[in-house]
């Protein structure tokens, strides 16, 4: 599938109808989501025929992109039942298989090494400090066996690298590219219509694996 085609399909997905401020629910836009998964597949071979998890999947954009690129089994995790319902409808609409689990990522319990790749757009931690690092820690230490792709604010780059390598035992932490992220004006405290922030697309490799 071509990048443009993937971006087009993702652009047609339903997004949060009533975003919940406490969970930092803003959609990962089709531009970013398509590039993220396209790179994971075409530069690293981390998607097709793999088991992929989408942490904080919201309406499912990243996980569905993985399914469209040929992931064999995709599981989306989110704390919010309303988002998961939208995500499931999006999967039906695209006619791809994606599984969902409602849970709080911070206390996820896990067995084995079945998940190859994690893709995620964690809460940036603007509501609850450290939310993004909680996600990263569970992804690297508990669940992923081969790679983790994640988005973090560019202003936190040094902190993310240090946390990944030192506290989460990552074997490597690499910024693949810098992207512009439009956080739409969903919430009253955003004064401008859209807040355009710089984010890094990271690829981490967990310890003790390939």
């Amino acid at each position: 599938m071509k990048l443009k085609q993937l971006e087009g399909l993702l652009g047609s997905l339903e997004q949060f109808s009533n975003p919940k401020i406490e969970f930092e629910q803003y959609p990962t836009g089709p531009h970013i989501a398509s590039r993220m998964l396209y790179t994971a597949e075409n530069s690293f071979g981390d998607v097709s025929d793999k088991v992929v998890a989408d942490f904080g999947c919201g309406c499912g954009t990243l996980g569905l992109a993985a399914a469209l690129l040929g992931a064999e089994h995709v599981v989306g995790f989110d704390i919010d039942a309303d988002s998961l319902e939208i995500a499931r409808d999006n999967a039906d609409e695209l006619e791809v298989d994606m599984e969902f689990v409602q849970c709080d990522i911070r206390n996820l319990s896990w067995n084995g090494q079945i998940i190859n790749t994690i893709v995620m757009n964690p809460p940036f931690g603007t509501r609850r400090k450290g939310a993004d690092m909680d996600f990263l820690s569970v992804a690297l230490k508990v669940v992923a066996s081969e790679s983790v792709y994640s988005l973090h604010k560019t202003t936190t780059r040094d902190h993310v690298r240090r946390t990944a390598l030192r506290d989460c035992n990552a074997r490597s932490a690499e910024v693949i590219c810098e992207l512009r992220y439009d956080v739409p004006q969903l919430y009253k405290f955003h004064k401008k219509k859209e807040v355009d922030i710089a984010v890094d697309l990271w690829r981490f490799v967990p310890q003790g694996k390939q």
């Binding site: 704390i79 499931r88 689990v101 709080d104």
Partner: peptide, 8 residues
């Protein structure tokens, strides 16, 4: 509807 709820 196919979705396990593991919230504590």
């Amino acid at each position: 509807k196919g979705i396990p709820n593991m919230l504590l």
